[in-house]
Nucleic acid binder design. Structure first.
Lengths: 156, 156
DNA sequence: GTGGTACTGTTTGCATACAAATAGTAAGTC
DNA sequence: GACTTACTATTTGTATGCAAACAGTACCAC
C-alpha cells in the first residue's frame, strides 16, 4: 500500500466536503437559474415551467387523463392535481369525465389554451437558449446526453 | 437561400417541441432523481439536501449569520429561515444574538449537530456516487464542469 | 447629526414536490 | 359472483422556493 493510500484512509473521515463540487448542489443551482430565466421569458404569459409542460403534453396527446399527464411531465398525482386546477381556473384546460372509465378525467385544451401554448413555445425556446448561452453546440449536446443518463430509469 | 432554409422558416412556427429534449425538463428530472436518492441514503438521519448543506456550511464557518448562510447555500432569506428553524427545533443548531450587530443572528452547531454532520457526510457521498453511477469518471468531470458553467454568474 | 441607502431578519402568499392515506372503480383470477 | 390487485383522483401534512412588503438597524455622505 502506498503512503498516499494510507493517508487517504485517514483523510476520508475528516476530509473536506466541498459542497460546491457535489452533483446535487450544482444540479439544484443550475435548475434554479433556469427556472429564473424561464420566468423572465414567460413573464407576459405567466406560465411556470410545469404549467407549460402540462399544456404542451395535453396538446401532443389531444386528450389525456390527469395521472397520465403527470407521468408524461414527471409530476406525481398530488402535484399534477394542483397544476391542472390552476390551468382549469385560468380557462386554459377543460376537464370532462372519461366516457369509458368513470375513474378517469379527460383533459383537453380550450381555444384560449391552444392559443397560449402556441405563443408560449417561442418564449420557452428562448429560455432554453439563454440557459445554455455559455455552452458551445457540442457542449450542449454533451450536457443533454449526460443529464439524460442521470434522469432516466431506476434509482440504482 | 437554400430550400432547406426556406422550409425551416415554415417549420419553426409549428415545429415539434420535444419536451424531453429541453434542458429545463432534463434538469428538473435529474434533480428529482438525485433528491430521491439522497432521501434514501439519508433516511436514518432525516436530513434534506438543504438541511445538510446548511449544517455543512455552519461547520465550515464555525459561526454564520442567517442571511450569509443562505447565500452560501443558494437559498433566499425566506427559504433559509424555514430551514434554520427546523434545525434549531431539532437541537442541531444554536441561535444567539450577534455581539456586534444587533440585526444579525449568530448560528453555530450544537454538539448534537456536530455529531450528526460527521455521520451524515459519508451518506451524502454515497448519494453523490449513486446519482453518478452510470457515468464514467471522465463523464462525471465533464458534467460537473458543464453544470458549473450553467449555474455560476448572472442571468445573461 | 441628519438623510439616504443598504442590509438584518421576518411575514404573507403562491407554486411545486412528495409521502401517506383515502374512496371509488377496473380487471384479473378462481 | 366474490376476491385480490391495481389504478383513478383526492386529501393532508411537511418542506422547499421565491416575490413582495415590512420593521429595525448600520453605514456612509454631507
Amino acid at each position: 500500500m502506498s503512503p498516499k493510500a494510507t493517508s487517504r484512509l485517514a483523510a476520508d473521515a475528516a476530509a473536506l466536503y466541498e459542497l460546491e463540487a457535489q452533483i446535487g448542489f450544482v444540479l439544484r443551482r443550475s435548475h434554479q437559474r433556469h427556472v429564473s430565466i424561464f420566468a423572465e421569458c414567460m413573464a407576459d404569459l405567466s406560465l411556470t415551467p410545469q404549467q407549460f409542460s402540462a399544456l404542451v403534453k395535453i396538446q401532443d396527446e389531444a386528450a389525456v387523463s390527469q395521472n397520465r399527464l403527470g407521468r408524461l411531465t414527471a409530476m406525481d398525482p398530488a402535484t399534477i392535481l394542483g397544476v391542472v386546477q390552476r390551468l382549469v381556473q385560468r380557462g386554459l384546460v377543460d376537464r370532462s369525465p372519461d366516457p369509458v372509465d368513470p375513474r378517469s378525467t379527460r383533459l383537453t385544451l380550450t381555444t384560449k389554451g391552444q392559443a397560449l401554448v402556441t405563443s408560449a413555445v417561442p418564449m420557452a425556446r428562448e429560455a432554453t437558449d439563454r440557459t445554455l448561452a455559455r455552452l458551445t453546440p457540442a457542449e450542449r449536446k454533451d450536457l443533454l446526453r449526460l443529464l439524460s443518463k442521470l434522469a432516466t430509469g431506476e434509482n440504482e
